[in-house]
Amino acid sequence: MNVDEQELTEPWQGVMITPATGSDTGVLVLAGSSGRIERERSRVLANHGLTALSIRWFGGPGQPPGICEIPLETFVSAIDLLESSGARRICLLGISKGAEAALLTSIHDRRVDAVIALSPTSVVWGNVGPGRDGQRRPYRSSWTWRGQPLPFVPYDDEWTPEEPDHDGPVALRGLYERSEEKFADMVHAAEIPVEKARAEVLLVAGGDDAMWPSLPFAERLAARRHATGAVRLVSRADAGHRPRLPGESPAPASPHFCYGGDSVADAALGATAWPHILGLLRGDHVDSGPLS
Rank of each mutant, 00 (worst) to 15 (best):
A171E: 08
R173T: 06
V153M: 10
T74L: 14
E162T: 15
G168D: 10
C91Y: 07
W212I: 00
A271I: 02
G98H: 07
G261K: 08
P216K: 07
V29C: 06
A265K: 02
R132Y: 03
A78F: 03
E248D: 05
A265E: 04
P246D: 12
S288G: 11
D157P: 01
G240D: 03
L28I: 05
T74G: 08
D185L: 03
S142N: 09
G289Y: 13
W145E: 09
D167F: 10
A102Q: 09
G134Q: 13
A230V: 06
P138F: 10
P130K: 14
S23W: 01
A273I: 04
V3P: 05
T18P: 01
V204H: 09
D262H: 06
P64E: 02
G247H: 01
R88G: 15
D157Y: 12
G247I: 00
S96D: 15
Y139P: 08
G126Q: 07
E158L: 06
P71V: 15
H256S: 15
V153Y: 08
L150T: 01
T160Y: 06
G126P: 08
E7Q: 13
G22R: 10
E177C: 06
P149G: 14
G283R: 07
Y176V: 02
R244Y: 03
T18L: 04
L50Y: 04
D157A: 13
S122D: 13
K196E: 13
T228L: 14
D24V: 09
L203I: 13
A189E: 07
G168P: 00
W57V: 04
V44I: 14
